[in-house]
Amino acid sequence: MESVIIFIIVLYTLSASGYFAYFFVQKNNFHKIGYYLLLAGFIFHSAYIISGYIKSGQMPVHNLHGTLSIVSWSVSGVFLILKYKYDLRILGIFAAPFSACIMIVAIQFPGITSGTDKLFESLLLIVHVVTIFIGEASLALAFGVGLLYLLQEYTIKTKRHGFFYKRLPSLDLLDNTGYACIVAGFTFLTTGLIIGCIYAKLVWGKFWSWDPKEVWSGITWLVYAALLHKRLTVGWRGRRAAIMAIIGFIVLLFTFFGVNFLLQGHHGNFTRW
């Protein structure tokens, strides 16, 4: 298993270097290489996750290794879809290294834990985890797109048409992609949270137990809900939308890691190693 992960990391890393080469040299072949390497990495990664599931009969998310691996997998998956739909190649320089780095962190933690927990066997839980992670991956990409937007806006506003101006796509494309990421991310996040609540009702008998993880998930959800609301009502687009996507992602990161490290709760296993 170890060697498969290393192989996946190598693919992601090479893909990242392909995208970086594309960014600097601006030759189309590099971004094609990056794309196919990432696709290959994603296929192997999917196989790795599925085999883990078949072996243990449960979703491999009961430790930090498993959860990080799924985060990385979701980011590459969502990026591949975005690339297909919007042809936003440049985002590869965010997505590919992101996936690679998370996997490198993941491999620092042991993959197999002793003791199985009945909690992880339900189909509902699998759906809960997968939808939430896909949502979070989309929001991570929205964060990346937001950064690129701010960078490009800065070059246009300050009239410094150098390195980035030439390489980054139009503000319109960045804004639209960011919006699409947030809509997708928010939809998956909402679905995931609802399923989580239903599952909680089945396991613990109540939908909501004011667990810190639940509270912070709620806060994250509210941030993105506010962003979408503002966009639909008063047309918050461009700079403000980009800044909100960045703030939202920081809150999301805290919900993901911070809560587990700093506070206690029933998602504790999530980041245990």
Binding site: Q152, I156, Y165, P169, S170, L171, D172, L173
Partner: peptide, 9 residues
């Protein structure tokens, strides 16, 4: 050219 960087098309 600038217009394209702002509006895309």
């Amino acid at each position: 050219e600038l217009g394209r960087k702002i509006f895309g098309s």
